[in-house]
């Protein structure tokens, strides 16, 4: 069961919408974990683009999605570890309060 190729533009629009929501979320929120979630959302929006294009351009797009997921998993593991580490130190995860990296 699948949709016809004419659904490609629609898929892309959905993907763009999700990506934009992710960007807006990153800009909107201060909670590090929510920002993280939004990044995951953006990654998935990209995945949708890959999958949608794969139907016309070849199965490699799907392989790429696979890699994106692996990277996302690694990123999530390390990122969450950092958040935990930061939380232990500051007792909060508000990104506006972390400004030590300016040096």
């Amino acid at each position: 069961m699948s949709v016809p190729p004419e659904y490609l533009p629609l898929s892309l629009v959905v993907s763009a919408t999700l990506f934009t929501i992710g960007v807006g979320g990153v800009l909107l929120r201060r909670n590090a974990i929510i920002i993280f979630l939004c990044i995951e959302l953006m990654l998935n929006a990209v995945n949708l683009t890959f999958v949608a294009f794969a139907r016309q351009l070849g199965v490699d797009g799907q392989v790429f999605v696979f890699f994106v997921m692996a990277v996302a998993a690694a990123e999530a593991a390390v990122g969450l570890a950092i958040i935990i580490s930061v939380f232990r130190h500051y007792e909060m995860v508000d990104v506006e309060r972390f400004d030590l990296l300016k040096w």
Binding site: V23, L27, R30, V95, E96, F98, D99, L101, K102
Partner: peptide, 17 residues
């Protein structure tokens, strides 16, 4: 330039976007 580098991620993200 140093004002731009505030260390505030929000600002960075906004500028980046």
């Amino acid at each position: 330039g140093s004002r731009l580098q505030s260390g505030r991620i929000g600002t960075y993200v906004l500028v980046f976007t």
